[in-house]
Design a protein around this nucleic acid. Structure first.
Ligand SMILES: [Mn+2]
Ligand SMILES: [Mn+2]
Ligand SMILES: [Mn+2]
Ligand SMILES: [Mn+2]
Lengths: 217, 217
DNA sequence: ATATTTTTTTAGATTTGTCTAAACTTATAG
DNA sequence: CTATAAGTTTAGACAAATCTAAAAAAATAT
C-alpha cells in the first residue's frame, strides 16, 4: 500500500506520461506537484525501490506495469468522487477538483466498487474524462480540439483539457458545457479566435480557450 | 487547521472525556490510539501550544472550548459518513467504522453541509449515536443500558455502546437491531443474563452483551 | 570542441510523529 | 511514613517528506 504522497507522485507521473513516449523529467514532476526537484529525486528513488517506476539517473522515470495500475486506480477514484460530488451533492464542475484530490486517497476497494454502482457505473467524469473500470480498462477515444475545426464543422462538446476553476466558470458562463452541439461559423484569421453557434446563439471564443475544448464530430 | 494525527487525538480525548468529569490520562489516550505514552505526551504538548487542550504536567488533559468544537466537528463528519455508507452504499453497520475513520478527515465544510442535506439531515448514525448539528449542538438524550432493566420492562433499542465488528454482527444475527421493540421476560440470577422477547421470538443475551445495548423505555 | 546553460543529483538540515530507555512524579500498600 | 508500584515525562534516536546550497551530468550554443 502506498502513502498519500507516493500516490500523488504516481498520479502526476501517469498524467505526464500521457503526453509523451519518452521518460518523465524530474523538473516536470516538481512543477506539477509544487515541490523542489531535489524532493522529487528522493521520492523517485523510493518509488524505484518499490518497483513502481523504472529509473536511471539523469534519464527520468517511466511507470512500471504495477506503477501504472496503481496510478490508474487513483485516477478511477478521483473521477468517481467527482461524479458523486456533481451528481449527488450538486457541486458545480469547477468546485470538485480539490475535494476529489483528498477523497481519492481513501483506501477501500469495497468503497469504490459500491460508489461506482451507486453512481450507475458512469463512463465519464464531470469534465468529460473517461473513468477507468474496475480492471483499469480505460476508454481511450481521443477527441479533437475545437481549435482544429474548420468553418462549417459541427460537433459535440465532449470534454475539456484544462481544469482550472476560472476556465470552467468561463465556459459555464458563455454556455459551453458538456454535451452541447456547436457549429463553427467563422475563424478569424489574425488571432485564430473561433466564432460558433450554439443553441441558436452566436458566441466567440479565443484561440487559447478553443485549444482546451474537446469535440466529437 | 489540524493535521490528521491531531484530529485523531482530539477525537479520542473527546470520547474519553464523556465518561468522566476529571482530566483524561496519558495512558488512556495511548491505549485508545494504539501508541506509546511518550508519543502522547509529545502530542499533548503540541495541542496545548495550540490552545486545544489545557494541560498541567502529570495531571492529564481537558479539551478547551475550541478543542471541544474541533472534536465535535470530527465526530459530526464521522457519523455523517457512516450514515452515507449504510444508507446510500448499502454497507452493513459493522463495516463502516474504519472507512469513516478515514473519511472524517476530509477538510471541506461545504462538503459536509451538502452531505448532511443529501442525507436529509439525519439525527443519528447507524449505531444510534447522535449526530452533532452544523453548530456543534448535540442531542444528549441518555438511554438506559439493557442490563439495568427489570423483568416485565418494555423498550426500544436505540443504540449500542460498543462498536466492534464481532459485537455488531452478533446483534444482527440474533435480531437485535436499532428501532426494535423488546420486553424483558426473565433475568437469570446467577449470571445476570437477560431473556427477552422480540418480534414474538424469545432470545437470551449475556449480561456482557446487555451492558452494551441502549434502550428507551 | 569547448564553453555556457539547464537539469538533475547529493549532502546536510528541518519538521512531524513515532519509539525505547531512563528519570521523575504521584499513588498505594504495609 | 517509607517502600514499592504505577503513571508520566524527558532525552535521544529514527523514518518520512521536505528544503537549500553545492556538485555533477547532460544539453545547447558558438
Ligand atoms: Mn479533477
Ligand atoms: Mn475531472
Ligand atoms: Mn464509527
Ligand atoms: Mn457510529
Amino acid at each position: 500500500m502506498q502513502s498519500f504522497t507516493e500516490e500523488n507522485y504516481l498520479k502526476i507521473i501517469y498524467h505526464l506520461s500521457l503526453n509523451t513516449e519518452s521518460a518523465v523529467q524530474t523538473n516536470a514532476i516538481a512543477e506539477r506537484i509544487q515541490t523542489k526537484a531535489a524532493s522529487v529525486t528522493d521520492m523517485i528513488k523510493k518509488l524505484a525501490d518499490k518497483k513502481l517506476v523504472d529509473y536511471k539517473k539523469y534519464q527520468g522515470v517511466k511507470l512500471t506495469e504495477s506503477g501504472k495500475n496503481a496510478a490508474i486506480n487513483i485516477v478511477r477514484r478521483h473521477r468517481l468522487w467527482e461524479v458523486f460530488l456533481v451528481e449527488k451533492l450538486n457541486f458545480k464542475w469547477d468546485e470538485v477538483h480539490d475535494i476529489a484530490e483528498e477523497l481519492e486517497h481513501i483506501k477501500s476497494p469495497e468503497l469504490i466498487e459500491r460508489l461506482d454502482e451507486f453512481l450507475a457505473f458512469p463512463r465519464n467524469d464531470p469534465h468529460g474524462d473517461p473513468i477507468p473500470d474496475k480492471n483499469g480498462k480505460l476508454d481511450n477515444t481521443v477527441f479533437i480540439k475545437l481549435s482544429k475545426l474548420k468553418t462549417g464543422d459541427k460537433g459535440l462538446i465532449m470534454g475539456v483539457s484544462e481544469h482550472s476553476s476560472v476556465f470552467l466558470q468561463h465556459l459555464e458562463k458563455i454556455g459551453l458545457t458538456l454535451g452541447k452541439q456547436i457549429r463553427i461559423t467563422e475563424i478569424t484569421d489574425f488571432d485564430g479566435s473561433v466564432e460558433l453557434s450554439i443553441e441558436n446563439k452566436q458566441i466567440n471564443v479565443s484561440r487559447e480557450v478553443a485549444k482546451s475544448i474537446l469535440i466529437k464530430i
